[in-house]
C-alpha cells in the first residue's frame, strides 16, 4: 500500500480499490472462493451449488431520478448474483441510519426495496438496524447480502473470455452516474437522464435460455465500462478492442460529461451488464437481449483478441486507437 490513510479513491472502484483488495484483504482472508474475485462467491453447502454476495450502498443523495438507495441496494446484490448466471433467491438488509432521518423517507426506501425485490423475484428474509449520531453517517446506508442457486451447466466467470468472443452491452452507458451527479451538481435537463438502476436477473435468464455458452457477465458499476473491461482483460489474460462509434451514449450524458470533464466510459451504471459471448452465438444472444425490456438498446461494442493481453484498446471514431485504462482515483469535475 502506498497511502498512509484511506482516501475517497480507495472506494471508487478503480485502481486504488483494487490495490486495497489485493494487498490488504486478500492476504488476510485468503481462500479459494474469495480469491477468484468475481462479483459473487460460489460455494457448496451440502452439495448444493450456491452463489453468495454482499454489497453496501452509500449513495448521496439517497433519492435521485429513476431510483433511490433502496432500489439500488436490491438491484446491486441481485445483479452481482445474476452475473454468475445464478438465480437470486434471498436477501438480507442491514440499515445504518443517521439520527434525524424522517421516518417517511425510510418508509419510502423500504417500500422501494420491496417493490424491486418483487420484480426480481427475491425475498428479503432477514435484517438489522443501527442508528448512529448525527454526522456519523449521511442519512442512510444500506448493506444487502444475497444467495442464489447456480443452474446445471452454467459456468460464467471473469476469467473465461476467449479471443474471438464478442462484447455486448445491454444499452446506453453512464445514465446512473450522470443522474446522481446531476442531482448533486444541480444540473437540469430538457429531457431527464434517469438512472438505469434495474434488476438484471430476468435479462440474464432470457440470455441463458438461448445459449448457456456465455463466457463472462459483469455489471459495470463503479469505475464504469472501462474499469470492468480492464478487470475482464486482466482476469482472462486477453485483450479487448472496443469500437467507440458502437458504444451507446445518450446526447445528454455525453454533454454532461463534456461539461464536467468526465469520460462516459468511466461513469457508473446500475442496470447494465457486459456479456462476453462466443462469436457464433453472439447474434442469438443479442436478439434475445433486444426483446427484453432491459436490453432494447443492446449492442455489440467490441471483441476479445489475443493481442495486448490485459489491455483494453479503443478504436476511436476518427480511426485512431488508444488504450482505455482502469479508472485511477475518483473522477472529479475539472475545468482543464
Amino acid at each position: 500500500m502506498t497511502e498512509k490513510n484511506i482516501l475517497l479513491a480507495h472506494g471508487s472502484g478503480g485502481r486504488l480499490s483494487h490495490q486495497l483488495v489485493r494487498e490488504l484483504f486478500l492476504p488476510v482472508f485468503d481462500n479459494d472462493a474469495l480469491n477468484k474475485l468475481d462479483d459473487r462467491a460460489e460455494v457448496f453447502a451440502s452439495g448444493v451449488r450456491l452463489a453468495f454476495t454482499t454489497d453496501s450502498f452509500v449513495v448521496s443523495p439517497p433519492f435521485f431520478e429513476g431510483g433511490d438507495i433502496g432500489k439500488l441496494a436490491v438491484c446491486g446484490t441481485v445483479n452481482d448474483l445474476a452475473m454468475g448466471g445464478a438465480e437470486p433467491l434471498y436477501l438480507s438488509a442491514g440499515f445504518i441510519i443517521e439520527e434525524g432521518l424522517p421516518i417517511d423517507q425510510l418508509k419510502a426506501v423500504v417500500e422501494s426495496m420491496r417493490k424491486t425485490a418483487d420484480e426480481a423475484g427475491v425475498k428479503i428474509v432477514c435484517g438489522d438496524t443501527k442508528v448512529v449520531e448525527r454526522g456519523s453517517a449521511d442519512r442512510i446506508f444500506i448493506n444487502t447480502s444475497g444467495i442464489g442457486v447456480v443452474p446445471e451447466g452454467v459456468s460464467i466467470s471473469g476469467s473465461l473470455a476467449q479471443p474471438g468472443d464478442k462484447v455486448i452491452i445491454n444499452g446506453f452507458i453512464g445514465d446512473h452516474g450522470i443522474a446522481v451527479m446531476a442531482e448533486r451538481h444541480g444540473f437540469s435537463f430538457t429531457e431527464k437522464v434517469v438512472s438505469d438502476c434495474a434488476p438484471l436477473n430476468g435479462l440474464v435468464k432470457a440470455m441463458l435460455e438461448v445459449s448457456t455458452d456465455i463466457h463472462v457477465l459483469r455489471d459495470p458499476t463503479r469505475g464504469g465500462v472501462a474499469t470492468t473491461l480492464n478487470e475482464i482483460a486482466s482476469q482472462s489474460n486477453v485483450g479487448v478492442v472496443l469500437r467507440e462509434d458502437m458504444i451507446p451514449v445518450r446526447d445528454q450524458v455525453l454533454a454532461a460529461c463534456e461539461i464536467l470533464g468526465y469520460d462516459p466510459l468511466y461513469v457508473a451504471n446500475e442496470g447494465k451488464l457486459l456479456a462476453v459471448v462466443p462469436a457464433q452465438s453472439a447474434d442469438r444472444v443479442l436478439a434475445a437481449m433486444k426483446k427484453h425490456p432491459y436490453g432494447v438498446d443492446s449492442a455489440i461494442i467490441g471483441e476479445v483478441v489475443a493481442d495486448h493481453p490485459g489491455k483494453v484498446v479503443l478504436s476511436t471514431g476518427i480511426g485512431g486507437r488508444r488504450i482505455v485504462d482502469m479508472l485511477v482515483g475518483e473522477q472529479l469535475p475539472r475545468i482543464c
Binding site: S188, D251, L254, A255, A256, I259, R334, C336
Partner: peptide
C-alpha cells in the same frame, strides 16, 4: 488547458443565463 463547450442561451435573467448543451441545462 481549458475545457469549454458550446451551448445555447434559453433564458436570461440579469447577468445569469440558462444555457442548453445537448439537453443539459446549466446556469452560467
Amino acid at each position: 488547458m481549458c475545457l469549454a463547450i458550446p451551448g445555447k442561451i434559453v433564458s436570461i435573467e440579469d447577468n445569469l443565463a440558462e444555457v442548453e448543451i445537448a439537453g443539459v441545462i446549466r446556469r452560467v
